[in-house]
């Protein structure tokens, strides 16, 4: 993988450099020195971790092997459920409960999709080998 290495490091490095200029040259030790480096480091570290995980998973299967459910209503349900739960902060606790319930349904659906995908993935090489 030629990335996330260079691009990401360059990005974080540039942000740190700009923060350092503010701190050292302009003696801005308040928000500048807190916001810029911390967000830069946290965001790039988080993304690096995520993409490393993804890359490791990627090594185990090739792109063609990946099976993705074509229509994923549980994803939609989860998104709507979380939104409703958020609105519940204003509307009332009952909406938070409804949102939570829908989220549980959606999460269950997602779990089903993932297991089905994994089954299909395990079945796929055998099918090819048989052919």
């Amino acid at each position: 993988m030629s990335w996330p290495g260079p691009t990401e490091l360059l990005w974080a490095g540039l942000l740190l450099l700009l923060g350092a200029v503010g701190w050292v040259v302009f003696e801005e030790t308040d928000y500048l020195s807190i916001l810029l480096p911390s967000f830069a480091v946290v965001a790039t570290a988080a993304f690096a971790a995520g993409s490393q995980l993804a890359a490791r998973r990627q090594q185990r299967r090739t792109v063609e092997d990946e099976v993705v459910t074509e229509v994923s209503w549980p994803t939609v349900l989860v998104a709507i459920a979380l939104s409703l739960a958020l609105f519940g902060l204003e509307v009332g606790t009952w909406l938070i409960y409804i949102g939570g319930g829908l989220f549980a349904f959606g999460a269950g659906g997602l779990l089903r999709e993932w297991t089905a995908e994994r089954r299909a993935l395990r079945a796929a090489p055998e099918r090819r080998a048989a052919r």
């Binding site: 990005w11 942000l15 700009l18 923060g19 500048l32």
Partner: peptide, 9 residues
Amino acid sequence: LLFAALSMS
């Protein structure tokens, strides 16, 4: 990249 980094600052 420089453009983007500068615009964060």
